[in-house]
Design a protein around this nucleic acid. Structure first.
Length: 517
RNA sequence: GGCGGCGUAGCUCAGUCGGUAGAGCACACGGCUCAUAAUCGUGGGGUCGCGGGUUCGAGUCCCGCCGCCGCUACCA
């Protein structure tokens, strides 16, 4: 059985879950759900990144122990994902014992292989930022641009990862696997960066104890990024269950936003090579959601997010997913995130944007189709859904849409998959207009038209299940079908003719009540 | 500065190997009234950023310019 391993980055617990996190996570979830429909064995991983001095300090400021602090902050992500119907199979936390074991095992291997050595890290350090600054980033008089205070020269003994040893191997790997990084523009950026020459990087800290201890030197803990990336192998048993590990690795799909490309596309593959395992197979990079739209939209989003009093424009990171799902419903938010932005490109996030998608796609097209079909079935077929017409024009329309949707889902392009699916909805509305079953006497002609429309709704609820599981299950139920779309298999259950007929069709309330404006 | 990308209808964008410009949304008009003032049909003459060049012919190739954006190492 084919396997599909998909990950999100693990989210840093100092952030509150926001729409940017939700964007990546919903995309990963939709892909996971799609591959489950396809019959693949799926492992969908997300989690939280909980080490680093910033976390330790935040805990202290809040009068909590680091452990209590990360327990509380990590839980917010668990709850946010529950609220968005995220179907992750595992939720990893870097403070878990299994992760400490994996990190120590992984990096001990890298050390044993000779790719870690002791060195001195020195540079201009900003106490406020808690990080070293490049001289080119500093203002006049060696002042930190963020904190407006002078930086200090620090030297620290650190262990270094010999990243420089992997330039050629990385280039070679990416040239032999041209699809390893998508989209191609990101791949080119990475190749350009690598070819520009790689420097060794420090991977341990002595300035904090809130991290994974370096097994061969108790004075150090691993730098948080080095610890974090390894989560991807921890969760599938690295260092603890080799049989399980090799069954999932390296055919992984890492979803990530463009700002963390280097960590995932340069550091992480090199680390894997250094540890003697294959680099990750698929790095899928997407853009950022940007807050755009009119001033009104910001006001309304601010209002929805409980930030109505905040002055000035609202940033994406201030918008809580719960504020949106309360307002629009889980399915509509998921649909917007998946449909409105071409995966890979930057997208615009606005209240108008969601409202527009909600009304045009969900209320007017999908919801209304369900309502009008159910109504006519009630009046012309005594509420019992007829069989689809094998010769319906919609049969070939459906076949085309299904093929396109399958291809797009398989290619991690949800917006195209949904676009193709909605083409089928549109054609079905069109077909109803020309057949006008509500004007006809009950009989075979009416049955053929309505049965075909019901069949479209069945197929649509399978194709759309990865995006909107709740409403698809509801449509399924209203069609009188047993179970739910998640019991289906693609492509078998998207073939024309699957609706058996003879089932009681329920009208029900509007699936997506149209919204004002 | 260097490398890369983009600039097409009000908005978001498609435009394969060069051959008289397309989709969705929005808008307008018409039809229908089964349906959530929903739906269906029709309507897009936009210097394809600007200026040159190659060609029988260029949004589509080449050069220059303007504008915008990405990357150019230790931020999760």
């Amino acid at each position: 059985m084919p396997r599909f391993y998909v990950t999100t980055p693990i989210y840093y617990v100092n952030d509150a879950p926001h729409v940017g996190h939700a964007y990546t996570t919903v995309n990963a979830d939709a892909l996971a759900r799609w591959h489950r429909l396809a019959g693949d064995e799926v492992f969908f991983l997300t989690g939280t990144d909980e080490h680093g001095d910033k976390v330790a300090r935040a805990a202290k400021e809040n009068g909590a122990s680091p452990t209590d602090w990360v327990d509380a902050t990590s839980r917010r992500f668990v709850e946010a994902w529950r609220g968005l119907n995220i179907s992750n199979d595992d939720f990893i936390r870097t403070t878990e014992p299994r992760h400490r074991v994996a990190v120590q095992s992984f990096l001990q291997r890298v050390y044993d292989n000779g790719f870690i050595e002791l060195g001195t890290y020195s540079g201009w350090y900003c106490v406020g930022c808690e990080e070293y600054k490049d001289t080119s980033d500093l203002l006049e008089g060696r002042v930190c641009p963020h904190h407006r205070r002078p930086v200090e020269w620090l030297e620290e003994e650190n262990y270094f990862f010999k990243l420089s040893a992997f330039s050629e191997r990385l280039v070679d790997f990416y040239e032999r696997h041209p699809d390893a990084i998508r989209p191609p523009g990101r791949r080119n950026e990475v190749l350009g960066f690598i070819k520009g020459g790689l420097q060794d990087i420090s991977i341990t800290r002595t300035s904090t104890t809130w991290g994974v201890p370096v097994p061969w030197d108790a004075a150090h803990v691993f730098y948080v990024w080095y610890d974090a990336l390894i989560n991807y192998v921890t969760a599938i048993g690295y260092g603890q269950d080799d049989e399980r590990f090799v069954s999932w690795w390296p055919a992984v799909h890492h979803l990530l936003a463009k700002d963390i490309v280097r960590f995932h596309c340069v550091w992480w593959p090199a680390m894997c090579m250094a540890a003697g395992i294959d680099p990750p197979g698929h790095l899928v990079v997407h853009g950022w959601l940007l807050v755009g739209g009119e001033r009104l939209s910001k006001t309304r989003i601010a209002s929805a997010a409980g930030n109505a009093d905040k002055a000035g424009p609202l940033s994406l990171t201030e918008i809580a997913p719960e504020a949106l799902t309360e307002d629009f419903g889980v399915d509509a938010v998921r649909y917007f995130l998946l449909r409105d932005t071409a995966f890979g490109a930057d997208g615009d996030f606005s209240y108008e944007g969601i409202t527009s998608r909600f009304n045009a796609d969900l209320a007017n097209n999908l919801g209304n189709l369900m309502a009008r079909v159910a109504m006519v079935v009630a009046s012309k077929c005594k509420g019992v859904g007829p069989k689809p017409d094998p010769a319906s024009r919609l049969q070939s329309v459906s076949a085309g849409a299904v093929a396109d949707a399958i291809s797009a889902w398989n290619d991690a392009q949800p917006h195209l998959a949904l676009e193709a699916t909605w083409r089928l909805i549109h054609e079905t509305n069109s077909e109803l207009e020309s057949a006008e079953p509500w004007k006809c006497e009950p009989g075979p002609v009416v049955d053929a038209v309505l049965g075909s429309a019901l069949e479209v709704l069945r197929i649509v609820s399978v194709l759309t299940w990865p995006a909107m599981p709740e409403v698809c299950a509801e449509i399924w139920r209203r069609l009188g079908l047993p179970g739910s779309p998640d019991g289906c298999r693609v492509p078998a259950d998207t073939a024309w003719g699957g609706y058996p007929g003879g089932l009681v069709v329920e009208k029900g309330a509007a699936l997506f009540p149209r919204r004002a404006r």
